[in-house]
Each structure stands twice: as C-alpha cells, then as structure tokens.
Computed example of a mutant assay.
Amino acid sequence: MSLTLIRRASAEFAGTALLVAAVVGSGIAAARLSPTDVGLQLLENAIATALALGALILTFGPVSGAHFNPVVSAVDWWLGRRAGTGLTARDLAAYTAAQTFGAITGAVLADLMFGLPAATWSRTDRTGGNLWLAEVVATAGLVVLVFALARSGRTAAAPAAVGAYIGAAYWFTSSTSFANPAVTIGRAFTDTFAGIAPSSVPGFIAAQLVGGLLAVAALAAWYPHAADSADVVVVPHFAQENR
C-alpha cells in the first residue's frame, strides 16, 4: 500500500470515526438532556449529526474526498473503473476497511466519553419492510446528490448540501437515514439512542446496497457522464499517486 493511500485511508478512518462519535454521542446527550421527549431527542441528534458531517467533509475532503461511506466509495469505483477516474479496486478495499473500523472506533469513543462501557451490543431492533424501503430511498438520494454535485461542478457546496440532506433525512425517512453500511455496523456496538441490534444490521446493509444500485441507474439516466467526475467525489482531493 502506497504512502498516499495510507494517508487517504487514515483520513477515511478518522472522518468516519468522528462522524459516528457525533451520531452516537449526540444521541446519548439528547437522551440525557431531554429524557421525556423523543421528538426533541431526534431533533438534537439530527442537528448535531448534520453540522458535524459538514465540518468533517471540510476537514478531510482535501485528503481523501471525505466519502465516509462504503456505498459512495463503491459507486465511485464502479463509475470510474473504465474511465480511469475515481477509486481503484485497491483503493476501494482500503477505504471500506478504514470506514468500517473507523465507525466501530467512533461508537466506542462516544460510549467512553459519556462514561458507558466501551462496547455493548445494541438491543434496539430496527427491522421491517418500511425501514428497509426508507434505507433504499435515503441511500439512493445521498449517492445521487454527491455525484450530481461533482458532475455539475458544485463540490464546494458538498459540506452544506450533504449535511443538510442527512439532517433532513433523519425526519423524512422512517429509519432515520443510516444510509451507510459502515455507520450501521458501528452503531451496533452501542446500546444507546442511536444503536441498532446486530440482527437488524444485514437488512439495513442490503437495503443500502440496493439504494446504491438504484443511484447508479439514476445517474446513468440523468448524469450519463458522471464517471468523468469520479475523481472529485465527495469533494476534490489530492492527486492520487502510485495508482
């Protein structure tokens, strides 16, 4: 693995870890500060997550593109594989591993910051066709947004746009928009407001992958040359060396 890829993968690890720490930590804080109002808890959790995501894209985007999401990375690889843009297969493997372990680390970090056991399997069941459908919609919308911004030359708006989308999707989807396999796995390690039971994880990930496939189809119809911009997803980052 080249030093450049190590640097980029470490950025994906740190960014995903901090994203999950924000999701889980703000969920814990919300449950403690507003113990009798679930709606207010969700609002607090959504606002903190949206703001943190925007800040993390600004921080790590110049290094790795700030994917923080295996589906975004997989679509980036798929669209760019023939054009020679976007991630290589080696990049994709490194990004996915970094994102997944980063998400687990972020959940552990949040638990520790709030004086909880480092890792406890969640007991929050999240299963059912309506939740899986919500994850398909949330993931497809996120991927289309990211690639539409890149293809139209508006990546400067990505921190605000992606943060706003996720913040809104907390409310317009019944699943509260996980939209990310790595984050889903990480959230299984915390038995708190933002947790998901391990038995519910496969259904969510399957739905997220379907959402990614739908996004590829949508991009083919609406942005047929999206592959040309795969190198600047989510935001432009340093030139890839030793590809």
Rank of each mutant, 00 (worst) to 15 (best):
residue 80 G to E: 08
residue 230 A to N: 06
residue 54 G to Y: 09
residue 30 A to T: 08
residue 103 A to H: 01
residue 174 S to R: 11
residue 30 A to G: 12
residue 54 G to V: 10
residue 65 G to R: 01
residue 129 G to S: 14
residue 46 A to L: 08
residue 133 L to H: 03
residue 122 S to W: 03
residue 59 T to K: 01
residue 90 R to H: 11
residue 193 F to P: 00
residue 66 A to N: 06
residue 241 E to K: 13
residue 175 S to N: 06
residue 160 A to C: 04
residue 134 A to S: 15
residue 110 A to P: 04
residue 226 A to M: 07
residue 120 T to V: 15
residue 128 G to V: 12
residue 234 V to S: 14
residue 235 V to Q: 01
residue 201 V to T: 06
residue 16 T to Y: 01
residue 67 H to R: 11
residue 116 L to C: 04
residue 50 A to T: 04
residue 87 L to V: 06
residue 88 T to I: 09
residue 155 T to N: 10
residue 203 G to T: 09
residue 64 S to Y: 07
residue 183 V to H: 00
residue 223 Y to G: 01
residue 33 L to R: 10
residue 157 A to K: 05
residue 205 I to M: 13
residue 161 A to F: 09
residue 113 M to I: 14
residue 81 R to K: 14
residue 113 M to E: 09
residue 26 S to W: 02
residue 188 A to S: 15
residue 42 L to P: 00
residue 237 H to V: 08
residue 207 A to D: 07
residue 95 Y to I: 05
residue 9 A to G: 04
residue 242 N to G: 15
residue 71 V to K: 00
residue 156 A to S: 13
residue 199 S to F: 07
residue 78 W to S: 12
residue 120 T to I: 13
residue 112 L to E: 11
residue 135 E to C: 07
residue 222 W to S: 13
residue 1 M to K: 04
residue 104 I to H: 00
residue 140 A to M: 15
residue 87 L to M: 12
residue 73 S to M: 07
residue 41 Q to K: 03
residue 241 E to Q: 14
residue 86 G to I: 09
residue 43 L to F: 14
residue 119 A to N: 04
residue 68 F to N: 02
residue 69 N to H: 10
residue 140 A to D: 05
residue 188 A to D: 02
residue 149 L to A: 08
residue 33 L to W: 13
residue 211 G to S: 10
residue 167 G to P: 02
residue 26 S to T: 05
residue 127 T to H: 11
residue 123 R to K: 14
residue 122 S to M: 09
residue 185 I to H: 00
residue 141 G to K: 02
residue 51 L to Y: 03
residue 166 I to G: 00
residue 131 L to M: 11
residue 140 A to W: 06
residue 97 A to D: 03
residue 67 H to I: 08
residue 96 T to M: 13
residue 7 R to H: 12
residue 137 V to P: 01
residue 6 I to P: 00
residue 79 L to G: 03
residue 237 H to Q: 10
residue 180 N to V: 08
residue 21 A to P: 00
residue 197 A to N: 12
residue 65 G to H: 02
residue 215 A to K: 07
residue 64 S to L: 10
residue 151 R to H: 14
residue 143 V to I: 15
residue 111 D to F: 01
residue 216 V to N: 02
